[in-house]
Structures are given as structure tokens and as C-alpha cells.
Design a protein around this nucleic acid. Structure first.
Lengths: 206, 206
DNA sequence: TTGTCAAGAGACCATATGGTCTCTATAATA
DNA sequence: TATTATAGAGACCATATGGTCTCTTGACAA
């Protein structure tokens, strides 16, 4: 079942009208808006949109339309992830403690998640205990960038480290002279799972 | 003209219904929601709310209500202030470079503004150049807290300092051993204008 | 051409809903 | 007590609006 041009036009009009007026348009208002004379014709398109699940009408109620998708003005937010099981797709996790009411695009990313920093291993990068690290999901990262990683078999939780890549080794370096780097050679390198790159820090009530 | 309990109840119901359903309730739905039998009675309250400007009806349209205030789902945000002229009420300033799409309540404050940190004078508090300091407006602050202040005659811009209060002096202390404190005694103390207290830090693309 | 199908026009209907009017009960006030 | 005001109940009306039906037109295929 395809969505025709006319039907997209109808969706757009409803969305626009709803945003502007604060309530959904009547059938006749939609007609006027998209250049139809008879609302009888319009209703066929509405029924089609309903069967596609793009819109929901309340039978028997006047002027009561729900845009199933876009209208439910859900503000994009950043989930704070707790324990992250290695191997699982990150953002599909249900283990979300909390949602930060912040649009990921603020950090230049269409999607992002957050980890709560524990300890002071990144203190020289001015990231302190309790900070929320905002991470853009990606599998690869350039040398020297700060990444969230999981090391297979070592820790169940993701940690923040500076990525150091040489020809034969991968180094996970803390930003604290009192902590040791983890260095992986050869096949051991595959134990490292990069979850994403650090794109921001949020500190509440410092 | 006062808003009665009943009328607040009506506003709340409309707001709740609108948020939940995606369209405004009909008069009879409001009646059922707040425990009225006759919508004829309800309409008197509606008219009163209209004359108070809290609600707006579209005469001749069915199920068409606008909540004047809350319904215009404007997301609370945090303004980033640039130059701040001393003496002016802070949040009334039009000199807003930017709005952070973040609800101030996230930082535990009903309102807040942000300043972009310049330099490394607060580096030991792990606040670095380019960070956004989130400030809750308040005139007073306790000893040792980090505040945004303007010092009369010295700098046109607000700066972030640690507040040190003794019996006779007020000290503005940077969090960097290479910087000097500013110490004010006696009448000089009135040169200090506290704009607010630091409640958060945001760092994008660190 | 002929038939089929979809989009639209236009008319008609049923009803949900806003609007108005009257009556009652309770409380406040003179 | 008498009067007034207010909230609410209940009935009735006008209409905006969703729903349905029929007819026309144009595109497309057999």
C-alpha cells in the first residue's frame, strides 16, 4: 500500500494546521487547504491513510484526528544508559535509567546516549566523577579521541578512555597519570568494542 | 477577575486531555471529566475563562479550543547571554546570542541562563575554556560556592569566581593557582554584583 | 471502441456539539 | 425573613461536521 502525493499533502496540511491552530482541522477545512471542493472525495484518502496507520480518526467524534507519527510531538531526548551488555545493540537496550530532555542535535548528532562517569580516570580532560558523558554511537574513531568502550571479559560496564592506535596495538589511555593504560596487541584487539565517541559533557549541580 | 477552583480544574482537564489525545475535548467531554452533568453550566465557566484570556474558543467551530498559555507548547529553554550590562535585570536582556534547547528544571531551577566560559581561570574546578556555565539567578550565595559576578567598573562582562566571605571582606577567587584573587573590603564590597550561582556545566564537542 | 478504475464533485443524511433558555438549590447579604 | 447571586441541571435548538451515495471525468488497458 503506497502513500500517494495527495495523501502526503493531506498529512502535511493536518500537521501544519495542528501546529498552528492547536487543534486538528475538519474535513472541510482540509478540503479548502489542499484545493478540494467535495469532502466526500477527501474521505476516501482519509480512509486510506487510516488503513496505512498514518492517521487515526475517532469514529463518531467531530474534528478529532490523531497524526500517529509526527503529531505526537515527542521531544527527542538522550537516554542515560546504565549497565551495557557487550554485544547488544546499544540503543535498543531497555536498560535506560533516565532520559535527558535534550535534543541530541544540540551535540551535533542525530542520536546519542549518555553514560554517568564514575571515578576520576579522565580528570585531566576535566571530566569528573558524576559527569554525564554524551556519546555519539559509532564503531570507529580516530586516534586520540575520547571514546566509550567495553573491553570483553574485563568489565561489564562501558568506560571512557582516550584511544591510541598504532600499527600493531590499540591503547586505551586514561587521562590521569596515576592510572595505567590498557594495551591490546594482535588478536586481543578484537576484545575492544567501541560504543561511540564523546561529543559532550553535562554536569548538573557541580 | 479571579480564577475559581472549578475554572482551574477545567484548564487542567483541557490541558491533560489535549496532551493525551492530541485534540481538545468537547464541552460534554469536559463535563464528564470534571463531574458535571449539564454542559450548559460549563459554558458559563468557559466564557469567564475566555474573558480572562486564559482560553480561546473559535465561535461556530466544533471542538476548537486553544489554551492561550500552556497549549502553545513552547519548550522552556536557557538563553546564552553575551555582554551583560551591570544593573540591568538579567533575564530581561535582549542580548541573547542563542537559546539552549534544555529545560532549566533539568538543573533544578525554574529559570536559568548560560555564560560561555572564557579562559582557564576555573580550570581546577574542571571548567574549561568554551564551556557553558549554567547559572541560576540569585543575589546571594553561600561561602565557597561558584558564582557569576560582575565587578563594577572593572569588567563589562560577567565572570565565574569562587565566593569567599569573611567578616570584613569578600574575596573572588579563581580556581587556578596562577591567577590572583580579587579582595574587596568595606564599601568596596558593594562593587560586587552577584548574578547567580553555578548549577551546571555543558561542554559540546570537547 | 469498450470496460474498468480512481479522483473528484455535489447532494443528502445523522449526529455530535456549541449555544441559549429556564428552573432549582444553596449560600451569601441586606 | 426576604433578596440576590451563583452553580448546576435539564431541555431545546441550530449547525458544523463526519458519513454515504450517485454521477462525471479522465486515464489506462484489453
Amino acid at each position: 500500500m503506497t502513500t500517494t502525493e495527495r495523501q502526503k499533502q493531506i498529512l502535511d496540511f493536518i500537521s501544519m494546521f495542528q501546529k498552528q491552530e492547536g487543534f486538528p482541522p475538519s474535513l472541510r477545512e482540509i478540503c479548502k487547504g489542499i484545493g478540494l471542493v467535495s469532502h466526500g472525495s477527501l474521505i476516501k484518502h482519509i480512509r486510506s491513510l487510516e488503513s496505512q496507520g498514518l492517521i487515526k480518526g475517532m469514529p463518531g467524534k467531530k474534528r478529532a484526528w490523531k497524526l500517529v507519527d509526527s503529531q505526537s510531538i515527542e521531544i527527542p531526548s538522550i537516554p542515560v544508559l546504565g549497565r551495557i551488555a557487550a554485544g547488544n545493540p546499544i540503543l535498543a537496550q531497555e536498560d535506560k535509567e533516565e532520559q535527558l530532555p535534550i535534543n541530541p542535535s544540540f551535540f551535533g548528532s542525530s542520536e546519542a546516549f549518555a553514560l554517568r562517569v564514575k571515578g576520576d580516570s579522565m580528570i585531566e580532560a576535566h571530566i569528573q566523577d558524576g559527569d554525564l558523558a554524551i556519546i555519539r554511537p559509532q564503531q570507529e574513531a580516530e586516534n586520540g579521541s575520547i571514546v566509550a568502550v567495553i573491553v570483553e571479559g574485563i568489565e561489564p560496564e562501558a568506560t571512557l578512555k582516550i584511544l591510541g592506535i598504532t600499527k600493531n596495538t590499540i591503547e586505551l589511555r586514561p587521562a590521569n597519570e596515576f592510572y595505567e593504560s590498557l594495551i591490546f596487541r594482535g588478536n586481543d584487539r578484537s576484545k575492544i568494542k567501541v560504543l561511540g565517541k564523546l561529543v559532550g559533557i553535562i554536569r548538573a549541580k557541580p
